[in-house]
Nucleic acid binder design. Structure first.
Length: 310
DNA sequence: AAGACGAAAGTGGTTGA
DNA sequence: TCAACAACTTTCGTCTT
């Protein structure tokens, strides 16, 4: 921990642009490079003892030696109801030690409950986040990023008038992009049950209000994802990338749904490399229609002079 | 029978008056 | 605020392998 702290304080040059104008914003817990706008945030966040609100000494001590502090801490059993019989799941009485523990947990939970509504809904949201992201098999850094984004949104009072789930889904989408683990609106929509357009709208909103500096969705990230999901050969994946690069160079991609281009690239590559996938397969994976693939691949192969002998 | 094709109508978001 | 518009989808009949 100390090590980490010292390290952070020593950051004086931006890893991105090598600029030296690093601004520290203690309130937001961010380090910002004023040269290129890079936010070195997640390293800094949640530094202080966020557990201090439980002013019980015992707890304070435990908190600092326990699990690493992460934006996800509101989760972890705290939202579970704790029964009032001092018995374990078999109905046997608990030992003194266990009973004391259960008692503390109960007290803790009660305190959590009593706290203000924003905290309560935050806790709820975070546990919801865990459910969704584990259903989607998302890595931890994505979860933490999503939690961070959600927290910031909550702090800025951006949730009011919107639904928790909607913002959460949008935060998750943003986090996926930030971490280069791209997921489509469709996927997130399927898991969360939030309509795609709502996620998209909330995402735009968050991105504007929180000034998330996300690079435009990289078709390349999607290409990798879908390429592997389709079990496309390495050769074909490389080919798809080639096609995509070319298409971008020729400015054939502006104003188009990147997913359509990605799907078409994958399809063309699969045909060219003799590892053919049907339009249907590709369409299903990527989440566009066959018609779109058809139109796009016609357009692409024509403009790029690629001959597909079918 | 499955895949590919394309026309036609429908949908939701963006744009510009 | 609203209509025009472009991109994409849905649906469906037809052609190809």
């Amino acid at each position: 921990m100390n090590n980490k702290k010292r390290l952070l304080e020593e950051i004086t040059t931006c890893p991105e642009c090598k600029g030296t104008h690093i601004i520290r914003d203690p309130n937001r817990g961010e380090l910002i490079c004023s040269d290129c706008g890079l936010v070195l945030e997640d390293e800094l966040i949640d530094y202080g003892p966020d557990w201090r609100s439980f002013d019980n000494e015992e707890y304070e001590k435990k908190a600092h030696t326990g699990a690493p502090v992460s934006p996800l801490i509101h989760d972890g059993g705290l939202t579970t109801e704790i029964g009032y019989q001092n018995r374990d799941s078999y109905g046997n009485p608990l030992s003194n030690k266990a009973r004391a523990q259960v008692y503390r947990l109960r007290k803790w939970q009660k305190r959590l409950r009593i706290r203000n509504s924003t905290d309560r809904s935050l806790a709820e949201a975070l546990s919801q986040l865990m459910k969704i992201s584990s259903a989607m098999n998302l890595p931890r850094d994505v979860r933490e990023t999503a939690a961070m984004i959600y927290r910031k949104a909550a702090e800025k009072d951006l949730i009011r008038g919107r639904t928790i789930d909607g913002i959460l889904a949008a935060a998750l989408y943003a986090a996926c992009r930030q971490c280069h683990v791209p997921r489509t609106f469709d996927e997130i929509s399927k898991v969360t049950g939030i309509p795609k357009k709502d996620i998209a709208r909330n995402y735009r909103f968050l991105s504007r209000e929180l000034k998330l500096r996300l690079p435009p969705a990289s078709p390349l990230d999607y290409l990798k994802l879908f390429g592997s999901r389709l079990h496309l050969s390495g050769e074909a994946q490389a080919k798809a990338k080639e096609i995509l690069d070319q298409a971008e160079k020729e400015k054939l991609t502006v104003g188009q749904n990147p997913l359509g281009i990605v799907a078409a690239s994958l399809y063309i590559a699969s045909v060219l490399c003799g590892d053919k996938k049907t339009q249907r397969e590709v369409a299903e994976q990527v989440g566009v229609t066959e018609v779109t693939i058809r139109n796009k691949y016609k357009q692409l192969s024509e403009k790029l002079g690629i001959d597909i002998a079918l």
